[in-house]
């Protein structure tokens, strides 16, 4: 009984922190401090958190270098949009989210099975090629309206929905990483041959992690397609895959909190640079080079590589959420 109480305590605090963050932002929106412009930034950050956390699962934790995450996002966005354009109301929204995630997961399985035998840069290039193929297909088929994309998409995402999906997916992935299957995935990153010799079926868990990552990217795409009115194949090109990878590496490979901080910081930088249209990408490029030269291990480094530290990081997550809401207050 005593043990159980102790276990519940941090979980309770974590839960409390999450609720406080939700309530503060909701309040700011209700009283009109956070207008639509800022909220659009929050939505982008939220979607990027899901993308970064899920790519981190694949690349940072399982050690499989993917450069095609935007491909899964586009599948989620298109499947969801196709559903919401046909099925009205909240049922359509929920069905769309499910369709988006499931379709991305299925493609993740089909792509992952053959390609995950590849290592390092070869896998990166194969996933990049896969994402380009997906983009070209969406550009040329009728149901997605080609290069012009789909427009007039119904809007569903508000703060509550966004929060539910972002927090939900993050918690589920953190839980997963704390499980035996999660540890099996991490052991693949550490040493494939040793993992295999200890009874870990590496193909199976590489594919598992890839499918979970693809599913989450699909959900992120579906959120995009239910907040922004237009989706185009070019939105989900190579540049988007790179953006996600940059968040993950900037935050720290193998650090969930790092991915969250990375998404928030880069989202804010991008918002601040928005007024400098001409030089925006030039500054972004210089930032990338400078950050990589001076801190190649990212903000959080590999501090969560150990699972015991992940536990502590779970508590940091709380603090982080507090910080994030403070930032938005200012």
């Amino acid at each position: 009984m005593k043990v159980k109480n102790l276990m519940e305590k941090p979980a309770f605090r974590k839960f409390g922190g999450i609720i406080v963050l939700y309530a503060v932002v909701q309040l700011l929106i209700s009283v009109g401090i956070l207008n639509d412009y800022y909220f659009a930034t929050i939505v982008t950050i939220g979607i990027n958190v899901i993308l970064a956390v899920s790519l981190n699962l694949i690349t940072g934790f399982t050690g499989q270098f993917s450069l095609g995450h935007a491909g899964f996002m586009s599948i989620g966005a298109y499947f969801c949009a196709i559903v919401t354009l046909r099925v009205p109301g909240i049922p359509g929204f929920l069905l769309g989210m499910l369709a988006g995630g499931a379709a991305a997961a299925v493609v993740g399985l089909l792509v992952g099975l053959p390609t995950l035998r590849l290592k390092g840069d070869y896998l990166a290039i194969a996933t990049l090629g896969m994402a380009e193929i997906i983009r070209i297909v969406f550009q040329n088929i009728e149901i997605t309206n080609g290069a012009a994309g789909l427009s007039n998409l119904p809007k569903f995402v508000n703060w509550s929905w966004l929060f539910l999906f972002v927090a939900g997916i993050t918690v589920l992935i953190v839980n997963f990483l704390h499980s035996s299957i999660g540890r099996a995935c991490i052991s693949i990153r550490e040493d494939e041959i040793a993992a295999e010799s200890m009874g870990i079926n590496i193909t199976r868990y590489k594919v598992t992690s890839f499918i979970i990552g693809a599913f989450c990217a699909g959900i992120a795409g579906a959120l995009y397609a239910t907040y922004f009115p237009i989706i185009k194949p070019d939105t989900f090109g190579f540049a988007k895959s790179v953006d996600i990878l940059v968040i993950v590496v900037f935050g720290g490979l193998g650090s969930i909190t790092g991915s969250i901080v990375g998404a928030v910081v880069l989202g804010l930088i991008s918002m601040l640079l928005a007024s400098w249209t001409d030089l925006r990408m030039v500054i972004y490029a210089i930032l990338l080079i400078v950050i990589m030269i001076f801190r190649p291990q990212g903000l959080m480094g590999s501090r969560e590589f150990s699972l015991a530290m992940l536990k502590r990081a779970g508590e940091q997550l709380n603090g982080l959420f507090h910080k994030k809401s403070k930032k938005e207050e200012n």
Binding site: F65, V282, A285, L288, M292, Q297
Partner: peptide, 27 residues
């Protein structure tokens, strides 16, 4: 400067240089 850093860090730097040349040229 990144010769001993991880491959991913070097790759992102390369992408950064690529962006810099593309958008610098565009500017």
């Amino acid at each position: 400067p990144l010769r001993n850093a991880t491959r991913i860090a070097a790759l992102i730097t390369a992408i950064g240089v690529s962006y810099l040349l593309e958008y610098g040229m565009m500017y």
